[in-house]
Amino acid sequence: MPETSQVNILLVEDDQIDVRFIKKTFQTHRITNPIYVASDGIEALEILRGEGGREPLARPYLILLDINMPRMNGIQFLQELRGDPRLSNSIVFVLTTSAHDQDKESAYAHNVAGYLLKSGIGGDFMNAIRMLENFLVSIQFPSEQ
């Protein structure tokens, strides 16, 4: 696998066990992109916008988004993101245990790139990881960003 371009990954996930598991799986698959973690939608927006005295998250970036989180959940986060002219073009994959059609509909209504299930830790999740691996290698981002 050729070296992946330095796409930053913003993992929006409140469950620390899931965060550790996802990071470990990435390492196993030699996905070495820098990973930033936000524990809910509010923190994710702060990181993306560079609030609280920090720089905005450097582009290019890819957002991996959980749905069920305290304070601001994944769908509310998507509403904010798509409503913000500077962030509306972001690429977002949902990564969740929720298989509810309603969540899928809401996510795609906000044009996520894809909806991935965390639950299938066997084959399904491995296919998701392989997909992200190939995604990070193949996807073109605007160079001016």
């Binding site: 298989a99 509909e105 894809g114 909806y115 991935l116 296919n127 392989r130 190939n134 290698v137 193949s138």
Partner: peptide
């Protein structure tokens, strides 16, 4: 081939709009 493999994994792993 990475692009093709991406699309392959994508159709397998992604839950499509219901």
């Amino acid at each position: 081939m990475h692009t093709i493999r991406l699309l392959d994994c994508f159709t397998i792993s992604v839950q499509f709009p219901p």
